[in-house]
Nucleic acid binder design. Structure first.
Length: 829
RNA sequence: GCCGGAGUGGUGAAACUGGUAGACGCAGGGGACUCAAAAUCCCCCGGAGCCAAAACUCCGUGUCGGUUCGAGUCCGACCUCCGGCACCA
């Protein structure tokens, strides 16, 4: 039998949607708004079916919401700056701008062929001056607020990409992108002070009830707040002090030694001119080498050196030896710790190795003993702690902290694992940092009226490897007059991390062409937070944290009326082939055209949605795709075989009581399908079960009307039409082309997406009969078909007079009879 | 190590608040149509017991226990896989 003409149908509707602006959004309709946002892609070229999932889920959801009466905002744009464009451009000897533009055109074409429709009037492209002008504006706002600062920092340097990487972009000591082991360099870099927002970013996670739990957890662990106390220890005989951070001031009396990071400044002071200086320096060099190799966990008990020096416990006056050891990190706290081996695992390991005293200061239960875990269990009582003996741990924390603060020897402090965000990059293809270095005035922001600072086109953009940006080679770009004093000055030649570009794009969609402001507060306040954000879980930390930070910042400055940008988040799973992620380098990608060509975009969409719950990683199976194609053909043939009935309007309401039993079953199945599909999609993105419900409806519909139509005696045309219309409308968001065509052919005016979703009548959602399960002692012994909503007494009676039950009872009385409405009766003997 | 998530047929997966395990597909087997094939349509399809069929019975949701009339679902312990963090004081 002939296949339905998908190619022709799909082209027709794709062109019509584009022409009619199907997803054009009217921003003035805010009473029922739905902002449906998909993470904008990096324009890397061809998209494969794995990428497609994100956009197909989003497009289907947007269409559902449209049919549910929402004014849907579904925009799309391009995260267009970044390294791959440069690398590809270097390889192919074309300009990154050209390469990027070509890819955008290609990907737009692909969306079009998939039937994925956006409001293209709102397209944003982060590498265009009309966009990055405002990324630069954002930088200046952060600068003015004291949240963008320069610091000479030891930074992660990728020798292959020849650029600095953020901590977040270093994975296992290697570059996230190319896998090259990173090196350490000391360079002046720009940072955004995200740590200033650490606390609100952490506590507001609690308001994100509609985010996946695991994403919230990942962010919480990433920020990781710890409350503690900084304590000053005197370095004996020097008059100098070393400050330690601890979350356990209650164990202060148990500190039997101190450990400095080998990179702590005090180490240099202690070893300079010392008798064992050479030995110390050799050790430091070794630790340095280990640190750069990155990977291995450093065993606290493995390595450390006594520095021939002592510190004085500020409370007990006790002298304790000072060690340096690589298990203490310079990057966290103060780079120095007071070691309490009795109550900290790592300190315990170290003390064991170097035979240092272990003194119990918190007792759990009655028996003395050490408990070397860093967890703060809270029910211990202090011992060996002078005046603080007998206090509970929590109380001791407070008392000791108070005591230290009063005497000026310490202060309460909160530390985060989160570090400030290093945003400068020594690369060409990014937004230039809008700053000027003046010999007289120092670092000065470019006046906002002078934005954008244009990225010069004719620069040798290959990376240089000397720690400077390619922009530094352009004298024309660098030379500038200082906006403050008018003297000669130079521009900053670094560009911004692309995560800055993507940290605010969702605001720009509302006024993408506005040349006077990055976004409009009133529009943003009306349309945000985003109602549904959809993207890959790989952005769980970086992008989502940065976007939250920037939104919180803009909120704090009064530019926005809200702090959290994304009310609901959905992270879709990866599509794999042969058990691994689809990627070009692994050669296991499925090109969309290999499906669309023979079977059409609707089949591809249907398969991707039917495959599995969308949040789950799933395996692509070529054979299963055909099952979806078969289903669409069945729908098509159902129409064709009944065209004479379906093609013309069949009016009249359906009188349920006048229907025959099988007709009533179909009528109810349609109502059931409405209920299922809308519930599955709205509540949990369960497109897979929604589709299976529609397949069930089709299975019930299939026998209806065929022969009757042939013989010209079709019964109940209104029922046939009701069932078919229902199927078409429920299926339309997922397979839009075939459904638009069928909607038109069945005599409807206007797009199916301009029509309303059908509503289920609760009276008809359940089938008339159900299988009453009769159990004896919880084992199924019989089933009987009975009318829905048979009351408990009647159900019980049916069960008790069933021959099987009578047989099992053998004259005895049941001990108990459990009745579950519309389900089962369990006779317990 | 810590924090999440997941383990169900040959396979992708269903199973709403504890109540018929395996819906809906795919693959496979059988049949109809056909000269034949494709396509389509119909039937079967977790395992075991029975020569076979029907009926029936038992077992079965990673493992072992528990709660309950009843557990894939709840509780406890464990195993495996995936993801995140990993010297954070």
């Amino acid at each position: 039998m002939a296949k339905y003409p998908h190619a022709e149908i799909e082209k027709k509707w794709q062109d019509r949607w584009a022409h009619d602006g199907l997803m054009r959004c009217d921003l003035s309709r805010t009473d029922r708004k739905f902002y449906c946002l998909m993470m904008f892609p990096y324009p890397s070229g061809e998209l494969h079916v794995g990428h497609g999932r994100n956009y197909i889920i989003g497009d289907s959801l947007a269409r559902f919401k449209k049919m549910a009466g929402y004014e849907v905002l579904a925009p799309m744009g391009w995260d267009a700056f970044g390294l791959p464009a440069e690398n590809a451009a270097i390889q192919r000897d074309i300009h990154p701008a050209q390469w990027t533009r070509d890819n955008i055109a290609r990907m737009k074409q692909q969306f079009h062929h998939w039937g994925v429709v956006y409001d293209w009037d709102r397209e944003v492209t982060s590498c265009e001056p009309d966009y990055y002008k405002w990324t630069q504006w954002l930088f200046i706002q952060l600068f003015k607020a004291g949240l963008a600062y320069r610091k000479a920092a030891s930074v992660n340097w990728c020798p292959k990409d020849k650029t600095v990487l953020a901590n977040e972009q270093v994975v296992d000591g290697a570059c996230e992108r190319c896998g090259t082991p990173i090196e350490e360099r000391h360079l002046e870099q720009w940072f955004f002070k995200i740590t200033a927002f650490a606390d609100e970013l952490l506590s507001d996670l609690g308001t994100l009830a509609d985010w996946p739990e695991r994403v919230v957890t990942m962010q919480r662990n990433w920020i990781d707040r710890s409350d503690g106390v900084e304590i000053d220890f005197e370095v004996k005989g020097t008059g100098r002090r070393v400050t330690c951070f601890t979350t356990r001031p209650d164990t202060l009396f148990g500190a039997t030694f101190m450990v400095l990071s080998p990179f702590h400044p005090e180490v240099e002071r202690l070893i300079a001119g010392s008798r064992r200086e050479d030995e110390f320096r050799a050790a430091i060099a070794r630790y340095q080498a280990d640190r750069l190799s990155g990977k291995a966990r450093i065993e606290p008990g493995k390595d450390g050196v006594f520095l021939d020096a002592y510190a004085v416990n500020p409370v007990s006056g006790e002298s304790i030896p000072i060690y340096m050891a690589p298990y203490v990190l310079m990057e966290y706290g103060t780079g120095a710790i007071m070691a309490v081996p009795a109550h900290d695992e790592r300190d315990f390991e170290f003390a064991t190795r170097y035979e240092l005293p272990v003194r119990e200061v918190v007792r759990f239960g009655a028996t003395p003993g050490v408990l070397p875990t860093s967890s703060y269990s809270g029910d211990g009582v202090l011992v060996n702690s002078g005046a603080f003996d007998g206090l509970g741990q929590h109380e001791a924390f407070a008392k000791i902290a108070d005591d230290l603060e009063r005497r000026g020897l310490g202060r309460r402090r909160v530390n985060y694992r989160l570090r400030d965000w290093l945003i400068s990059r020594q690369r060409y293809w990014g937004a230039p940092i809008p700053m000027i270095h003046c010999p007289k005035c120092g670092v000065v922001a470019v006046p906002e009226a002078d934005l954008p600072v244009l990225l010069p086109h004719d620069v040798d953009f290959r990376p240089r490897g000397d720690g400077k940006s390619p922009l530094a080679t352009s004298d024309a770009f660098r030379a500038v007059t200082c906006p403050q004093c008018g003297g000669a000055a130079v521009r900053d030649t670094d560009t911004m991390d692309t995560f800055v570009d993507s940290s605010w794009y969702f605001l720009r969609y509302l006024s993408p062409k506005d040349s006077t402001a990055p976004f409009q507060k009133d529009l943003c306040d009306a349309w945000l937070p985003v109602d549904q954000y959809i993207g890959g879980v790989e952005h769980a930390i970086l992008h989502l944290l940065y976007a939250r930070f920037i939104t919180h910042f803009l909120h704090s400055q009064g530019h926005l009326g809200f702090g959290e940008p994304f009310a609901r988040l959905f992270t879709q799973g990866m599509i794999q082939k042969n058990g691994i992620k689809m990627s070009k380098s692994r050669g296991n990608v499925v090109p969309p055209d290999s499906i669309i060509g023979p079977m059409g975009a609707d089949t591809m969409r249907l398969y991707i949605l039917f495959l599995a719950p969308p949040e789950r990683d799933s395996e692509w199976n070529d054979e299963s795709v055909e099952g979806c194609y078969r289903f669409l053909n069945r729908v098509w043939r159902f129409y064709e075989a009944r065209e004479s009935v379906l093609a013309k309007p069949a009016g009249g309401p359906i009188d349920e009581r006048a229907l025959t039993a099988p007709e009533r079953a179909l009528f109810r199945k349609a109502h059931w399908a409405i209920d299922r599909v809308l519930g599955d999609v709205n509540d949990h993105f369960r497109f897979n079960t929604a589709i299976s419900a529609l397949m069930e409806l089709m299975n019930v519909m299939a026998p209806f009307g065929d022969e009757d139509v042939q013989s010209g005696s079709a019964q109940r045309p209104e029922l046939l039409r009701f069932a078919f219309d229902t199927l078409v409308r429920l299926l339309a968001p997922m397979t839009p082309h075939i459904c638009e065509e069928l909607w038109e052919r069945t005599g409807h005016r206007g797009s199916v997406f301009a029509s309303a979703m059908p509503a289920a009548n609760p009276d008809y959602v359940k089938s008339e009969q159900f299988d009453l399960v009769i159990q004896v002692n919880s084992k199924i012994r019989a089933r009987e078909s009975v009318p829905a909503d048979t009351d408990s007494e009647a159900m019980k009676a049916i069960a008790l007079r069933h021959p099987r039950v009578i047989e099992e009872l053998a004259g005895r009385d049941p001990k108990r009879v459990v009745v579950i409405q519309n389900k089962l009766v369990n006779v317990v003997i």
